[in-house]
Nucleic acid binder design. Sequence first.
DNA 1: GGTCGCTCTTGCCTTATGGCAAGTAATTGG
DNA 2: CCAATTACTTGCCATAAGGCAAGAGCGACC
Lengths: 190, 190
Amino acid sequence: MKELILSQVYQHPLISADDLRRIIDAHHPRSFKKGEVIYKRDKVLNEYLVLESGLIRSYTHNYNGDEITTDFFGQYEVVIEVLSLFQRTPLQEDLQALTDGCGWTIPYDIFQELFHTIPGFSEWGRLWMTNKLFQFKQKSIDIITQSAKERYLDILTNKPQIIRHAPLKQIASFLGITDTSLSRIRKDIG
Amino acid sequence: MKELILSQVYQHPLISADDLRRIIDAHHPRSFKKGEVIYKRDKVLNEYLVLESGLIRSYTHNYNGDEITTDFFGQYEVVIEVLSLFQRTPLQEDLQALTDGCGWTIPYDIFQELFHTIPGFSEWGRLWMTNKLFQFKQKSIDIITQSAKERYLDILTNKPQIIRHAPLKQIASFLGITDTSLSRIRKDIG
DNA sequence: GGTCGCTCTTGCCTTATGGCAAGTAATTGG
DNA sequence: CCAATTACTTGCCATAAGGCAAGAGCGACC
């Protein structure tokens, strides 16, 4: 399973079979239970996690203490908060499991070494960052151009596992609306 | 001026004086006039631009053809669309000058070479991406947690040069509201 | 098996922002 | 310097989403 998942995730034309072997070997297993906070706010992140199974969300709090879910992570996704890992600053969010699950972690210092010795790996990393950057840029455009209902339908078709496992309140805050409004949207859709 | 600007932008503990020299030498001058579209949609970006003076915005269009301003760039900022540059795909936005100005460009292939031969440079690049990623993530949080007025006041204090040079309509679409609403917000502030 | 707590729904009313249209002010180009 | 275009403002009304509170459903735990 380890090889299967990780060779999928680290697929890149410039990463050779040998490189991939080194990368895969650097990963350690990690499993978690529903509700567990995998990485805690205010600590500096020292690894990241590639998800094999389960669902994870990241969340922060607004000025009056309400939780805001900022992201969801599913199978094959990289669970990370780049600001903390790469700038060595405390996490600004909690990362919490929504279901039981497991995955593979890689420590920061090993990652660094591979990043600087395997050209294909730094390319891969940059590409990953590029996609993540685009994703958030797109999200901020979607929030201002689409209605809450349209954004909900988007998730419903593209990320159905989120709808299945995350409570309404978390989905609502991710969409940028209240749980009340999301409930009405669901009613409206039927 | 070239040294001053670029050594400021590429400041990083792992970039030596020699490295910095190589990086600076790779940059070419570029100036532009108000209103000029510096990088055009549908073309693949082959360089990026470090701004010495002037103001630039990026914009795209929503489904019914209205312009949406997605970002503003000022002095010392890197004018780029990462998705196009690093994935070699066509630009999805236009990059347009709001004022006369000038800066320094570096071609993609030279950038690539430096990125893979100067460890401090790839660190710098990753750090830059990290910050940009955070910025967009923060923007999407701000849109859902703050009122339009608060977001406007934010720009007013943190990026006053935008308010001074960009027309109301562009600022409004950047904030995610209509020009009508922004006009009322301005009236309200007094 | 009952009580507690959490999740979700719903009704009533409020508020922020939008849509349209008319009108004024400012800029641009010949 | 004038005409044309674009930028901005304002009034009137519409709409999406929020605030609050009551209540229903459901699971968790002793």
